[in-house]
Every structure is written in C-alpha cells, then in structure tokens.
Design a protein around this nucleic acid. Structure first.
Length: 304
DNA sequence: TCCAAGTCCTGTATGC
DNA sequence: TGCATACAGGACTTGG
C-alpha cells in the first residue's frame, strides 16, 4: 500500500519524466477516479488541457503537480479556459493507485482510470487504480505556515521528511491526546505519511505496543518513537518502498523491496528478528496490528 | 464470504 | 443547555 516512502518514489519518477511538459489531452476512463473534483470529469479535463506541469511536490501520502499558466502553453486548445495561477493537479494513490509513465504504444492497463497525453507525443502519464480508493482533482494552492499546499489538504500535518516537521511540538501534541499510540500515528492531521505498515514497524523499533495510551508516554519515549518513524521511512525509501504484490510499483512499473526488511508487519506466526518470539496479529480499527510480544509487551492500561 | 486499508462522514463523548 | 472539539467506528471499493 502506498505510504510516504512509496509516494516519494513515485514523486521522483514523475518529476523526472513529466515536469516541464504541457498537457495536450486528458482522458477520464472512470468517473470515480476524479470524484474529488466536484465540477466533474468534463471540467477536470477541460481545465487541465493546455496546462504545463511545473513541479512535483508531496506532503505525506498526497502528491501534486503544480500547474503553470495556461497562456504559457503555445499549443493550448483551450486558451479561453480560466487561468488559475497557483493551481495543482492533486493526487492520492489510495490503496492501489499507480502513476505510470508509459510509451503511447503500450496497451492500456486493465484498471487504467485517467490518461494524460503531452504535446509532442511520446510518453503518457497514466493513473491506474484497481480499487479506486485513490483519485485526482484540481485544487488551488494556499499558504499554510509559509508552505504552499493544495487547499483540500491544508489540514494535513507536515510529514517526517519535511523541514517543517517539528519533533518537539509533535511529541507534545501526541502526549496531549487521549487515545492509543497507533491511532495517533495514523492521524494525518497530527503526523502525515504514516500508514499501517510503517506504524507497526516504527512501534516495533521503539519497543512500544500499539495499544499504549498516549497520555502515559514520556517525552523521551515519544522522541524515540518519532526517531524510529523517521528511520523506518528513510530505510524504506532507500529500498524503493514496500511491495507485497503488483499493487505498488514506481512510475516504471518496478517494485520496491523493503518488504524483505519488515520485522513484524505481515509476519504473524514468524519469529521476531530480535528476540525470536512469535509475532502476533491483532484486530485494530477493522484492520491489523502486528506486534512482537517479547519486544512490545501489552500495557496494563491498554487503549484497545 | 472474508480480507486488505486510507479517507471521509457521522454519531457519541467530553469539557467549557 | 448549547456549542465546540475530540474521538471512535462504519462505509466505500475490488479482486484474490
């Protein structure tokens, strides 16, 4: 599932292949893929056509392509379309979304949802999504603490790889919560970019059980956990992300290999690499939480 | 039929 | 009592 490291890998690929290109044509093959664009698929295609992609940026699991002025596009076919300086093509990959850069002669993927063609032909940018939890939309950019972000994600907190990530402030915010630590880690308005995989891996590295109440954590323990989050993100990024199956690939269709380094996530019944205890799976928020009972003992006052 | 899981929405709880 | 905020849980989705 695409979490922060996987989205960053995709961002780098998109930046290398489609930034500075002008959109010649937009094809929406499944309306659900643009459901967040309230004006509909037709408006999405019309407003995006003729725009130049000037930068690829990311916050947490969201990725966006900043759009240049429509008037800059010499070959624009919709010169009369509304100019929107400070606009972006906002993307979320959901559970199974992929942004693929493909030569135009490559046959369509089974779950191809949106296709962008560019002036001059050549490679296309394709949004492929089996489960359609992800999607694309056009959004205006707003300034949040001197950082320009798309308006729909203005509430999303900085992620652990951003300069704006304030470890001390977040540690205090975590301790002020009255919930379990894993639920807090998954709250994108507190820290962005963490999903189920890296939450479990970071908690294991920090030696904390997922049900530990946030209010019982000391400042040094929360700092240790945030350091574990940062470390696991960097390790996964170096490995090209985590791929369990064909649902996550980079823009060239290649898988990452961080799944080989996972200590607990998806490892129920196997030995913990540190203490050899058997990793267990619990049900948490209608999904899974993996822990090592040796390294991550269940707290007496667990917040189930 | 169940499972995977990120986000949004809604209902409930809490505090002022 | 009423309001604002925090929190919890379900719905959505598709293919194995």
């Amino acid at each position: 599932m695409p979490e922060l490291p996987e989205v960053e890998v995709v961002r780098r690929g998109v930046a290398a292949h489609v930034v500075d290109r002008t959109v010649a044509d937009v094809e929406v093959l499944h309306p659900r893929a643009v459901r967040k664009h309230s004006a509909g698929a037709g408006d999405f295609a019309t407003r995006l056509t003729g725009r130049r992609l000037v930068a690829a940026r990311r916050r947490g699991k969201y990725l966006w392509l900043e759009l240049g002025d429509a008037a800059e596009a010499a070959a624009s076919t919709v010169a009369a379309s509304p100019k929107a300086a400070g606009e972006a093509l906002l993307t979320h990959l959901g559970m199974s979304g992929q942004l693929r850069v493909q030569p135009e002669h490559v046959p369509d993927e089974k779950h191809l949802r949106v296709r962008l063609r560019f002036d001059g032909g050549g490679d296309e940018l394709r949004f492929v999504d089996q489960r359609t939890f992800g999607g694309l939309s056009l959004a205006s950019l707003v300034s949040v603490n001197d950082v320009l972000v798309p308006a729909p994600i203005a509430h999303i907190a900085p992620d652990p790889l951003e300069p704006a990530f304030d470890r001390e402030a977040i540690a205090e915010a975590v301790r002020a919560r009255r919930t379990g630590i894993k639920r807090a880690l998954l709250d994108q308005s507190l820290i962005s970019g963490i999903g189920n995989i890296y939450a479990d891996e970071a908690l294991w590295r920090a030696g904390l059980h997922w049900a530990r109440p946030t209010a019982t954590l000391t400042r040094p323990v929360v700092r240790r956990l945030l350091d574990a989050v940062i470390d696991v993100m960097h390790d996964a990024l170096r490995a090209g992300g985590t791929s369990f199956d064909a649902l996550y690939v980079n823009v060239n269709g290649e898988s990452g290999y961080f799944d080989r380094s996972l200590a607990v996530y998806g490892q129920s019944g196997r030995e913990c690499p540190t203490c050899a205890a058997t990793v267990r799976r619990d049900t948490f928020m209608n999904r899974s939480a993996y822990t090592c009972p040796g390294c991550q003992p269940t707290p007496r006052n667990a917040h189930w």
